Amino acid sequence: MSTIVASRYKLVSPVGRGATGVVWRAYDLLLEREVALKEIALPPGPEAAERRRRVVREARMAARLSHRGIVTVHNLAEEAERLWIVMEFLEALTLHDTLVQAGPLPADLVAAMGRRLLEALRHAHDGGVIHRDIKPANIMLTGDRVVLADFGFAAPEGTASTSMRGTPAFIAPEALHGRGGTREADMWSFGATLYMAVEGRTPFRTVTSMAALVEALREPARAPRRAGPLEPILRGLLRKDPRARLSAERTSAMLADVRCFSAA
């Protein structure tokens, strides 16, 4: 028997797992369209209220962003000790899956993808939202769209945290000290994602513990081997001092130059 959520959404099949919950393919019985439902279980006890607060914040922040490069949020439902974020359904591969299947991508393709992703990120930043978990697994590629997904760690700009938020291989050095709620920290993660896309590896050696991560981030990023004209962009984005890091505006212009160079 099919599961119906909130008397409206018929669950079809799980399609993935985000940082904070399982994502389902579903069908909206009222509007007769496919949707995606992100299922988030509420823990027992006093932690439930905090988890609920974070999920509602995530949904509200994502819902107020209207851009074709950001997954659209339609609704938020609560049922059976679970919260369900209702979003547009995308027939897409993540950038992570694409790299697993196809290997590193050409520099001109990464530049084109990066420009579209950066447009979405700048829209979020202009709306006062910091993503805090930009990585290949949170980027959807479908048709001519590059879509930023999973705002589970997102926060208002300037938010301080006593705990690390994000994925170790893509987290900015300052986020280790609770200063990850900035545009500059997102730009580091964006740079690490572009590096992974064109190089097929992370900028720093693989780490399995917090101590190893701290040690790795003290070292310079591994020299790119395939980046070509992207190399100065990657180096500028992966500067450890956030004040010296490339801005979104400068990065966008440099990515445009890479595309022009590649087409010449």
Score class of each variant (00 low, 15 high):
D108C: 12
R115P: 02
P224L: 09
M140W: 15
A175I: 07
V198G: 02
G128D: 07
L117Q: 00
G200P: 07
V146M: 01
A192G: 06
P203F: 09
F153E: 12
R115I: 02
N138W: 12
A175V: 03
M164L: 15
I139V: 15
R145G: 03
D150L: 13
L121K: 04
I139M: 00
V207G: 00
S209N: 09
S161H: 15
P220R: 07
V129R: 06
M196A: 13
G166C: 09
P168R: 02
D126K: 12
G114F: 02
V207A: 09
E215C: 12
D144Q: 12
T193V: 10
E184T: 04
E219C: 11
G158A: 11
T208S: 15
T208Q: 15
P203I: 05
K135H: 05
I130H: 04
M140N: 02
W188V: 01
P173R: 04
L217E: 04
G180E: 11
L117H: 06
P203R: 04
A192L: 07
R218G: 14
A197P: 06
M210N: 01
L117W: 06
A160T: 15
G158Y: 12
T162Q: 09
E119V: 03
M210G: 00
L141V: 05
R179Q: 02
H131C: 08
A211E: 12
L148V: 04
K135P: 01
M140C: 07
T162G: 08
S161D: 10
R165F: 11
V214E: 11
D186S: 06
A149E: 04
T142H: 09
T208R: 13
A216Y: 09
F151C: 06
V110S: 00
R179E: 12
R205M: 08
N138E: 02
R116P: 05
R179F: 11
A212Q: 13
M210I: 07
L213A: 13
A223K: 15
T208A: 05
H131R: 02
E199N: 08
E174S: 00
F170S: 08
I139F: 03
T159L: 13
T162I: 08
R132Y: 00
G127M: 07
A212I: 01
